[in-house]
């Protein structure tokens, strides 16, 4: 590079520097000057507390893209990845460093509840502003097609007779719904032989096919393909009512006489101390977002069930979900 070119570069660099200095300086603040949300049109950050491509990230990006495509907001919104310890790292930053910040949102789901009980996080759902539930995914219990177990009852019976004989695959907290089912049907959840597959459904499906596992539990979308192809027999889903579409044949747990309903929800939350204006604003925008055609398409592609819920009903639901998780952890012996 000759001298002239380097000079040009440095001039360019200085200009860029000045420019970026001008439009920068957006210190986060709550900005409801006259009751209007984000009147200054500052950038809002939506945090996905996990790696790119993960479930939380997908949800965050789907929302961001819908907002942009349907022109629902008149300010920029960025998706930020803050992975670490199933959301605990990001949660701690949200609570401690963004208190009262109306311009910060985050995706969350059931680990916010269990992390607290494990002692991996100091904070729980009560320490943040839970804005709205977005989607719910239910669990399905499957066995390979050549398995002797025809119904959930068969499986539970076998576990009751000789728990060491039945290997059941689950990823982390996905054990909890099954533990609750065993517990509710009168068995001892501590004796269930859970085999952990931290990477989730794909590895469990593989282990069911290669004969390592006798049964498995995971989100419906993880096993739907195998069920449709006839490789797996679905014994039960954990939703209140039967699911729609190709999985409508699968009976619910409740139908089979065991009173357990368990959903893995995903929600959007803000930092503690978010203003009423901001909460109201996002409740409305999220509603429109979820109802839009763009998002419906996302939901269909990803096999999500849209289950919008806000306000007191949402708080009530969270309370129930929190107590279910606590019970699940207790009966599996993970907490006292």
């Amino acid at each position: 590079m000759n001298r002239k070119a380097s000079l040009l570069w440095s001039v360019l660099a200085v200009i860029t520097l000045l420019l970026s200095a001008c439009n920068g300086g957006n210190s986060p603040s709550s900005s409801n000057d006259n009751g209007e949300y984000n009147a200054k049109k500052q950038a809002v950050e939506l945090v996905a507390p996990a790696d790119p491509g993960s479930g939380w990230d997908t949800t965050a990006r789907a929302i961001a893209q819908t907002l942009e495509k349907e022109k629902l907001i008149n300010f920029p919104l960025q998706v930020l990845n803050e992975p670490g310890a199933t959301g605990a790292v990001s949660l701690s930053q949200l609570v401690t460093q963004h208190k009262g910040d109306d311009l910060k949102l985050s995706i969350t789901s059931t680990p916010i509840l269990s992390n607290y009980y494990y002692g991996n996080s100091e904070y729980s759902y009560k320490d943040v502003t839970m804005i709205a539930r977005l989607i719910t995914e239910y669990y399905v219990i499957v066995v390979p097609t050549d398995s002797p177990f025809q119904t959930l009852d068969d499986l539970l019976q076998a576990i009751n007779d000789d728990p060491a004989n039945i290997a059941l695959g689950a990823a982390g907290d996905d054990r909890l719904p099954f533990a609750l089912i065993v517990h509710e049907s009168g068995g001892d959840a501590k004796k269930v032989k859970f085999i952990d597959y931290p990477n989730g459904g794909g590895d469990i499906a593989n282990a069911l096919l290669n004969g390592d596992l006798d049964a498995g539990i995971s989100g419906v979308s993880e096993f739907r393909g195998q069920i449709e192809a006839g490789n797996f027999r679905a014994l039960a889903v954990t939703s209140k009512e039967r699911l729609k579409g190709s999985v409508s044949e699968i009976p619910t747990v409740i139908e089979q006489g065991i009173d357990v309903e368990f959903g893995n929800w995903r929600a959007i939350m803000g930092p503690p101390g978010m203003s009423e204006t901001a909460i109201k604003y996002w409740e409305d925008i999220i509603k429109t977002t979820l109802e839009s055609e763009t998002f419906q398409q996302f939901a269909e592609n990803n096999q999500w069930d849209i289950t919008y819920l806000v306000g007191d009903e949402f708080q009530e639901y969270l309370k129930q979900s929190d107590s279910d998780i606590k019970t699940g952890l207790e009966i599996t012996g993970q907490i006292e």
């Binding site: 670490g84 310890a85 605990a88 790292v89 991996n120 982390g172 085999i195 952990d196 931290p198 993970q334």
Partner: peptide
């Protein structure tokens, strides 16, 4: 990090960032 099969934290010294 956290040992998924047992749920026990190993060599994390109470640091959340080390759980993974």
């Amino acid at each position: 990090g956290i040992d998924p099969q047992s749920g026990i934290n190993r060599f994390t010294f109470g640091i959340t960032n080390l759980l993974d």
